[in-house]
Amino acid sequence: DRYEFNINGVHFTIDDAEEELIKLIEELLKRGARAEEIEEVIRRWER
Rank of each mutant, 00 (worst) to 15 (best):
E36Y: 10
A33K: 05
A33E: 04
G32T: 04
E18H: 10
I42K: 02
E20N: 07
A33N: 04
I38N: 00
L21Q: 03
N6T: 15
I22C: 02
L21F: 05
E46R: 10
L29Y: 05
N8E: 12
T13I: 15
V10T: 09
R31I: 11
E36W: 12
R34A: 14
L21P: 00
R31V: 10
E27G: 13
E39S: 11
L24R: 09
I42V: 08
L28V: 06
F12H: 03
L24E: 14
I22K: 05
E26G: 10
L21D: 00
E26I: 14
D1Y: 07
L29W: 05
E20S: 08
R31F: 14
N6G: 04
R31K: 13
L29T: 04
E37F: 09
W45S: 01
F12V: 05
K23R: 13
R43V: 09
R34V: 13
E20A: 11
R34D: 13
E18A: 12
R44Q: 13
R44Y: 14
A33Y: 06
H11F: 12
E46N: 11
R34H: 11
D15H: 12
E4S: 05
R31M: 13
E37P: 00
R44P: 01
E19F: 12
F12N: 00
A17Q: 06
I25P: 00
W45I: 01
D15S: 07
R2Y: 07
V10N: 05
E37T: 07
T13H: 09
R47A: 11
I7Q: 04
E46L: 13
D15R: 03
R47C: 07
F12A: 00
I42Y: 05
G9S: 03
A17R: 04
E36S: 09
K23I: 12
V10P: 00
E4T: 05
D1I: 15
A35E: 07
D1W: 04
A17H: 05
E39F: 13
F5G: 02
E19S: 09
E26Q: 15
A35I: 14
R47T: 10
R34M: 14
E39T: 12
W45P: 01
Y3I: 03
I7H: 06
V41R: 05
L24T: 13
E19W: 11
N6I: 13
R34N: 14
I38L: 07
I22A: 04
E27M: 15
I42P: 00
F12T: 02
E4I: 05
R2W: 07
K30E: 09
I7M: 05
L28H: 11
I42Q: 01
D16G: 15
E4G: 02
H11Y: 13
E20R: 05
R31Y: 15
G32M: 05
K23D: 08
E46S: 07
G9K: 01
R2V: 10
R47K: 11
E40Q: 09
E20I: 05
D16T: 14
K30D: 09
G9E: 05
D1N: 15
E20H: 05
D15N: 11
R47P: 06
N8M: 06
I38H: 00
E36G: 08
G32C: 05
I25K: 00
E40V: 07
F5R: 01
E26C: 09
A35W: 10
E18D: 14
G32K: 07
E37D: 10
A33V: 09
R43P: 00
E19P: 15
E26Y: 13
D16S: 15
N8L: 05
F12Y: 13
L28G: 06
I22D: 00
F12S: 00
E40Y: 09
T13A: 13
V10K: 09
K30G: 10
L28R: 07
L29V: 09
E26P: 00
A35T: 10
G32P: 04
E37Y: 08
R44H: 13
I14T: 02
D15L: 11
E39R: 09
A17S: 06
R34C: 10
R34Q: 15
I25L: 09
N6K: 06
G32H: 08
R44K: 13
I14Q: 01
R34F: 12
N6E: 14
E26T: 10
K30R: 12
I22Q: 03
L24G: 04
G32A: 07
D16Y: 13
A17G: 06
L29F: 08
E4R: 03
K30Y: 15
F12G: 01
Y3D: 01
N8Y: 03
E26M: 14
A17W: 05
I25R: 00
V10R: 06
I25Y: 00
R44M: 15
I22H: 02
N6S: 14
E46H: 12
R31A: 10
V10Q: 10
L21M: 06
R43Q: 10
W45M: 02
K30S: 11
E26W: 14
R2P: 10
E27S: 14
L24P: 00
V41I: 10
E18R: 03
G9P: 00
F5Q: 01
D15K: 08
E19D: 11
E39H: 15
I22P: 00
I14P: 00
N6W: 15
L21G: 00
R31S: 11
R43M: 11
H11T: 15
E18W: 03
R44A: 14
E39G: 08
I14D: 01
R43A: 12
E40M: 10
I38G: 00
I14S: 02
D15V: 14
F5N: 01
G9F: 03
N6D: 13
R47I: 12
R2S: 09
E46F: 15
V10S: 06
E39Q: 11
L29M: 11
I14H: 01
N6V: 15
D1S: 15
I22M: 05
E4N: 03
K23Q: 14
E36V: 08
I42F: 05
E26N: 10
L21W: 03
R47F: 15
I25N: 00
G32I: 01
L29I: 13
E40R: 06
H11L: 14
D15A: 08
Y3C: 03
V10I: 12
L24Y: 09
E36P: 10
K23Y: 12
L29R: 07
I42N: 01
I22R: 05
E37H: 07
E18K: 09
I7N: 03
T13L: 12
K30W: 15
I38T: 01
R34I: 12
K30M: 14
I7E: 02
E4P: 01
K23V: 12
H11E: 10
F5C: 03
W45Q: 01
E19C: 10
I38D: 00
E27W: 15
E40D: 12
I25W: 00
A17E: 04
E36N: 08
I38P: 00
H11Q: 14
E20M: 08
R43T: 08
L28N: 05
